[in-house]
Design a protein around this nucleic acid. Structure first.
Lengths: 192, 192
DNA sequence: TTACACAAAATGAACGTTCATTCTTTTTTA
DNA sequence: TAAAAAAGAATGAACGTTCATTTTGTGTAA
């Protein structure tokens, strides 16, 4: 337990600190110094766990992205109808953005800036496959509009990021009614 | 012409260089040095036009945002029906994101990160009023769903940013057919 | 149980570099 | 010719990273 466990704790603390500081200051304004301080660790210790700053943020991204898709597809099964399946995944993603908003905000920032290696970005995309499969089935059954996946994503999933951002910036307060409206808008934009 | 004109040219060159470099490297990885070099100017000269780096990027943001909304509402008139008016504005915004994609990308990056002062951000929001007015009319006439403006924006306008981002990243190639699909999705998500 | 030795983990100080900004000088303009 | 504009070199601070050293944890011999 002792040694290894301690290590994992430190690594987690470092990743948590990275998310926090990058969320509030951006990647390049976040000093290794500050990350170390927030994680209660010496700056030098970071380099026992990560190659360098870029590696730290890449690994943080991949880890958060994995957490995101795990959350999104929890309890999902292909046995559901297209509409029910979509609603299930959509609600899970919405929940994630609300509940794990620090994580979600970090992902949004990575996805909209050049701070992440293209390689790590590709690594993070893989996880969405079940949703793409669902859409393929929906198109075949004539339930989903025959739009390209990018369009379907842009109009049914991605808007949640915008809402989360507004919420985080406190220019908008999401409530249950809003979420109901949002789901309707999402479904109307892609259903046939 | 002479003095003042020359100054405006330099200022424009600086702003253009800022957009270019921030788009490709992010704000904090963009050195004043490099901005000066790209604008064919001494680093010291920047400080004749801008207070400091933050001021440079704030002013760049406000200027690009103004260009964006000018473009969006060009030739728009309130005499149009709600549907036609919306289509008009939507197409203008879509055009902007396609044609002025460097500008659009810069805005997207500013809107998704903490690089811009909250004050400048607020300054940039004002310009959307005609669209909000149109939605208000649409809701009153029962043509637009009675959703909050944030939701309407998230599902009808903001998705264009996502598509532009994918396009810029060359993971997706937008064509006319896609734009038609995108408009349908946008309108379906907000129409009653 | 204690004392010791060794390796792994962790540290704080130090390094070289790069950055935003300023200072002094030169050039341009009117 | 005087003032405004611009330049390039200089500056101090801050950064990512490394180095020399100390601390911690673990197994072993007494």
């Amino acid at each position: 337990m002792a040694t290894l466990q301690k290590s994992i704790d430190k690594r987690n603390a470092l990743i948590k600190a990275t998310i926090d500081l990058v969320n509030n200051n951006g990647f390049h304004a976040t000093a290794m110094n500050k990350i170390a301080k927030m994680a209660n660790v010496s700056p030098a210790t970071i380099y026992l766990y990560f190659e360098n700053k870029q590696d730290l943020v890449n690994q943080t991204y991949i880890e958060v992205k994995a957490k995101y898709s795990d959350y999104a597809f929890k309890n999902y099964t292909e046995k559901l109808s297209v509409e029910d399946g979509f609603k299930h995944i959509w609600k899970r993603i919405a929940d994630f953005k609300l509940i794990e908003c620090e994580n979600a905000f970090f992902l949004a920032q990575c996805d909209n800036t050049p701070i992440i290696d293209e390689e790590s970005r590709q690594e993070g995309i893989k996880h969405l496959q079940p949703l793409l499969d669902l859409w393929a089935r929906g198109k075949k059954e004539g339930i989903i509009k025959p739009f390209s996946d990018y369009i379907l994503y842009a109009y049914s999933i991605n808007p949640l990021s915008f809402l989360m951002m507004a919420q985080k910036r406190e220019t908008f307060k999401l409530n249950n009614e809003h979420m109901e409206e949002a789901f309707q808008a999402a479904w109307n934009s892609i259903k046939n």
